[in-house]
Amino acid sequence: MFEYEFMQQAFIASTFIAITAGLVGVFVVSRNMSFLSHTLSEIGFAGAAFGILVGISPLAGMILFTLVSSIAVGSLSGEASRREASISAISSLFIGLGILFLSLSAQSSSYATNILFGSIVGISAPEVKQLLILALFVIFIFLIFYKPLAFDSFDHLGAQASGLKTRLLSIIFLITLALSVSIGAQIVGSLLVFVLLTLPAATAKYIVHSVPKMILVSVGLSLAGVWIGLYLAFITNWPVTFFISTFEVLAYFGGLSYKNWKLTH
């Protein structure tokens, strides 16, 4: 399948998407932000549609929208629960906006399908390059802030007590989350990018018990998911997202059963 250039590009892009999503996902899950990452992908959809409407790239539109909203969320104070309700209200607004932007922009509906459901054929070489740069940037941020981010994500109170600047860490994290949502959506689509951002990490949580191991398992599962998905999508011509989400869901229930089995043995 690698004789086709679009497959090479899809392969490189999804490899990096999987690494970032698997890595960031461990922190999404430990910070209980699965819900927010879901909402961010809906906001990303509106951003992409906006990009098409005003004539910038969908990726740029997505980054613009997700970054602004994640920084807005980060600077909101108050309890997480109170935040969740307002986030979900906002997300409905954004889906509506996305649909409006698309209908105004008179683009063919296949464009919309690509943004929502992802596509392996849509990616050009310059776009792959953009994705790579963004992915490397996210990974780089995580290397720098790994220790304090892990402390804050796995024990917020302890991190506060030990004097870490948790507010700042939270904003840094939200920025990387916004970027991961935007780049992940290019292959798996904004409707399902949260699958890669939550399921592999949630599975890892059931089978290993340290942060580095969780990152390894999570990245491994999301890589396996996109590689298998790409291959099967190539030979069957079915949507890649279907295979990725099926694989990750199966892995998740496998992990859950393993955990329950271990509890009784």
């Binding site: 430990s30 790994y146 220790k147 892990a150 402390f151 796995f154 024990d155 302890g158 991190a159 030990s162 890892a204 949580k205 059931y206 290993v208 018990h209 340290s210 942060v211 969780m214």
Partner: peptide, 15 residues
């Protein structure tokens, strides 16, 4: 909560 007791304690170590 996934971390083992030792890994939880280790969160407070500097890199």
């Amino acid at each position: 909560y996934p971390l083992s007791i030792e890994q939880f304690i280790r969160l407070n170590l500097k890199f």
